[in-house]
Write a protein that binds this DNA or RNA. Sequence first.
RNA 1: GGGUCGGUGCCCGAGUGGUUAAUGGGGGCGGACUGUAAAUCCGCUGGCUCUGCCUACGUUGGUUCAAAUCCAACCCGGCCCA
Length: 434
Amino acid sequence: MGEAIQANQEEATAVPPLSEALARGIADLFPAGRDPDPDQRLEARLAESARQGRPLRVKLGIDPTGSDIHLGHSLLFRKLRAFQNAGHTAVLIIGDFTARIGDPTGKSSTRVQLDAAAVEANAATYLAQLGQGQPPERALLDFETPGRLEVRRNSEWLTGLDLPQVIELLGIGTVGQMLAKEDFANRYGSGTPISLHEFLYPLLQGYDSVAVQADLELGGTDQKFNVAMGRDMQRHFGQRPQFGLLLPILPGLDGVQKMSKSLGNTVGLIEDPLSMYSKLEKVPDAVVEDYLTLLTDLDTAALPEGPRQRQKAMALEVTATRHGREAAVQAQADAARLVAAGLSGAGQVSGDLSAESVPEASLAGLAFPLKAFYLLSALQVCASSSEGRRQIQGGGVKLDGEKLSDPNQEFSSPQELAGKVLQLGRKTFRRLVA
RNA sequence: GGGUCGGUGCCCGAGUGGUUAAUGGGGGCGGACUGUAAAUCCGCUGGCUCUGCCUACGUUGGUUCAAAUCCAACCCGGCCCA
């Protein structure tokens, strides 16, 4: 008895706090009991893991519903990587089955269901963007070190469920729980339709945790309900319930709404350095600190105080984490030159810019002579030729720093344009090549 | 299944037979200003290699010289009842 108490005390004092890499930016961690109980406190579970030499299984699910991963997703992967670096096993679940239901979280309407082929294509591009096939130093996730990554698809276990099993799952949640979930509550309250199959989504995501025997699930704060559902599921199936580690939802470039492709306020993971840097260095001041915390490892206390300097430091560092420091520094310099050229109204920026930082746009395949407004849509700088026309009329289009004024201005040959830089507004640049 | 109300451009939302890509707001884009920001002001915001031509108000038909606006059927949804 006395020994047991002593052992407990030893354990209590022996549990180290979470490392900076694991703790940084966490919005919520549950359960967070006070006792040194490895089922109630993550620090204790980590200590147990170290003692037993058994890596924790850290689950992160992604639904391959789009083709691009953006910075808003990346903070979850960064945290997952931090667990990999600490020696744990990342279990990346590709929600190929659930993607076809559509996560109702954060949605104000039923999501369109995708077909299997589209989902599979998206999954492949996701893995590529996460760094599959690249060395761990350059990749977002460590794909190479043995035991550090499992990639699973939830169709593996969800496709085979039969009706009795589905009914068992449905029995674990209640209508009250579902309607208490904010998204459903809002939709129900405002008379927006909720399809019955949408109730299945949290249950299936929870069941994923059972299938992979997760110790910990990562997610955005909007995932709390679903992650908690995983705990209920695991308990029901006789497993130790997972911990939930939630990260903030990254605000988008507008600084207000969450970063989301449909809102058009994203920075893509594979975006070129110049546009990545240019977008980041003008995010609203209010979100710069969030970006620093969630997207970099910088010691924010050591940065200069001026908001503009912090903004630049953040943009540089985030760009560097994706493209390397050299490319980021180059992008920063190019961004400054472009702005200077734009402000002075002087042309001839093209020669000063490094080739790789301004995306190229090929003139090949275009029929000359062509008119200025058509050029914009043909190069996909504008969504339509009509929009191109309007942008020129609005004074937003420059060629080598010189404002175009006539949408109907004709260019007779590719040589007339090759080597020049086409600019739309302040953010969009294209180096024209023949 | 019954009753009832409704489906308008990226979103919300006017418009109820007749200049019209269709009031207004939001959002977005562009311009001025600025810190490449915010705030403010101004412009644009269906498509088309465009001085003109197309396509648009859930769908399909119909009435009419003329329809987003009238009629019919159908599809989809909210609410109430079952």
